[in-house]
Every structure is written in C-alpha cells, then in structure tokens.
C-alpha cells in the first residue's frame, strides 16, 4: 500500500469537487474492496475522500410508488428494510447471498455497484491484465478461466462483475442517481452503468471522473414472483458461478458478464408465451466460453430455467 492522504467529506458536492479536481483521488465508502486493492498494489490512489458518513443512507418512498435508497445505506440495512423485504424480496435475497455479514455491514449500495472484478489475474500484479495495465494483455483468456464471462466479453477482457445485489437491481429495472463535477444530479440505469470491455476494459463504468453515486431508485415492483438463485462452490461467502434474479417477467443474470446482465431476449420469449427453457436458451444462444468456463453456459441455462419456474410458482 502506498502512502495516501485522507479527508472526510462533509457534503456530497465538496466530495465530488475534491475527487474531480484530483485524478489520483478516489471515493472511500465501506472500503471492503478498495482497501484490499490498495494493499495489493492494484489501486494506487494518493488521496481518499471518505463519503461513507455523508447523510445519504436513507431509504424513502418515491412518488411513483417505488423506493429511493441512499448510496451510503449499508447492504445489511437494505436487506433488512421491511419495505424492501415485502416489495422487493429478490433484492433482499440477492444481498444476503453476497459476502459475509461483516462485509455487508460495512459495504454500501454505491460501493457494491462500483466493486471491481474478482478475476484472479486482475488480483495478481505479476500477470498481464488489461484492466490494470491497458495494453498488457489478458492472462485469463488462455488461463485458468473457470469463472470468466460467457456473455459480452472481448478479446481484451473476460472478467465478470461479482456483485449479487446488482443482479437483483437490474432485474428490477433500478435507476442510479449520480452527482457530476458541476454538482448536478443525473439519472442513469443500473443496467447501463457498466461499460462493455471492448478494447478499453480499464474503463469500467459510465461515470465520469469524480462522479458520485448518491442513490439507487427502485420503480414499483413488477407483478409476479421474485426469486434469486446463486450457484457457488460453497454454501456461503463465495463468489457466484452463476446468478439469476427474476422479478415477474424481468430477468437478470449474474456472474456471466462484465455487468449484471439484463436478459431481454429471455424476457421477450417468456412474454411471447415460450417455455422457461426456450427463454433461457434464447438468452444464452450468444454465449461463448473461453475453455474452462464452458460449464457456465449449461449451468446458467439450467439455473435460469429453474429460477423462472420457481418465480412462476411451478416448483420450490
């Protein structure tokens, strides 16, 4: 870890200004990902702006009947919120499937959206990685890539987004509110937050430098059952091999791409009256493996079928 300076932000606008003005500054919230990356010499910020104590942790009703969740709400707080549990159970389930209680108590909603990949080659600074060092090459492409992406990857990066929470947010059609360098707040969607790796996998989100996520907005829940399923190597505290969130007719996949993957093709197939199996196959028709992750295509297909059927009440 390199030496750095630290300031505790007093309001969002000044925090945004502090980070916008300094290309080597980063926001710090729960710190559950950034501090690890700093200790491992993957991130080298020289200045941290602590936004974790900004008054952005409220969960409020919105005029359209949804919820607005402050970006600094901890994962635990959101998962335990009675309104979330009653109206958005898929979100509460997804959060509980992520990390450990200790991590969820520290990690924030905004930080969860911004967490970086767990690709082993990204974590090992002795190996080439285009995310860490643009142009260096991707070690995972021909490496031990058991958990690499099967959708939306490029020849420059096959890393996946590890978040559970984001998968549920994507299925729910959640929005993101972000404050830009000018102090203005703009809206985008969780589904559009992360950028395809293309030939610039080091550019991971649509946020500009210094832009701060201030809230996540949930539209009214879609009609129909909600289910979160996660396949993983052990029963708890493990990254997913595949995740599926179903909220009525809306579906998102996790662990398969650089972002939580809204399964629009599957949704369309279901809307057209096709079976869950046909819907899952429609979504995974474009899937491509890199060798050791080939099983994830079948795994994701089966998990999607099961989750849809479960949400439709067909099986427990």
């Amino acid at each position: 870890m390199r030496p750095f300076t630290y300031e505790r932000a007093t309001d969002a606008a000044s925090a945004v200004k502090a980070v916008s003005d300094n290309p080597n500054a980063r926001f710090l919230a729960g710190g559950t990902n950034l501090l690890d990356l700093m200790k491992l010499e993957i991130e080298h910020p020289t200045h941290l702006v602590d936004v974790g104590r900004l008054p952005l942790a409220a969960i409020e009703e919105t005029a359209d009947g949804g919820l607005r969740i402050g970006a600094m709400a901890t994962n635990s707080l959101v998962a335990a919120d009675p309104r979330v549990r009653a109206r958005y159970p898929v979100l509460a389930q997804a959060i509980i499937h992520g990390g450990s209680p200790q991590l969820r108590n520290k990690a924030t909603v905004g930080g969860n959206l911004m967490q970086r990949t767990r690709c082993a080659y990204f974590y090992d600074t002795t190996k080439p990685c285009n995310k860490r060092q643009p142009g260096a090459g991707c070690s995972a492409l021909e490496g031990l890539n058991r958990n690499a992406a099967i959708l939306g990857a490029s020849e420059h990066c096959i890393a996946t987004n590890p978040s559970d929470m984001s998968v549920a947010l994507t299925a729910l059609g959640a929005g993101v509110e972000a404050m830009t360098a000018t102090g203005a707040v703009r809206a985008l969607t969780v589904a559009d937050l992360h950028l395809a790796p293309g030939d610039t996998p080091h550019i991971e989100t649509a946020l500009s430098a210094g832009e701060l996520i201030t809230a996540v907005t949930l539209p009214p829940a879609p009609t129909g059952g909600q289910v979160y399923r996660k396949a993983r190597d052990r029963a708890s505290y493990a990254g997913g091999l595949a995740m599926v969130a179903v909220a009525g007719g809306q579906i998102a996949l996790g662990g398969v791409a650089y972002k939580p993957w809204r399964a629009l093709k599957a949704e369309a197939a279901l809307a057209a009256g096709q079976t869950p199996a046909a819907a899952a196959e429609a979504e995974l028709a474009d899937a491509r493996d890199s060798g050791r992750n080939a099983f994830k295509i079948a795994l994701t297909t089966r998990l999607t079928v099961a989750a849809i059927a479960q949400a439709q009440g067909g099986k427990s």
Binding site: R118, A120, Y123, D124, T126, K127, S139, E142, G143, L144, D233, R234, A235, S236, Y237, A238, G239
Partner: peptide, 19 residues
C-alpha cells in the same frame, strides 16, 4: 505459463465455512 499457483487468498482458495 507462469509456474504460479493461481489461488493466492482465501477468496479464491475455498475452505469450508460454517454454512
């Protein structure tokens, strides 16, 4: 290709947890 073990922390090398 590198002669290196790939799992270098307990996030990658999975021992049983309580669950």
């Amino acid at each position: 290709r590198y002669g290196s073990l790939i799992n270098q922390d307990v996030g990658g090398y999975l021992v049983p947890v309580h669950a």
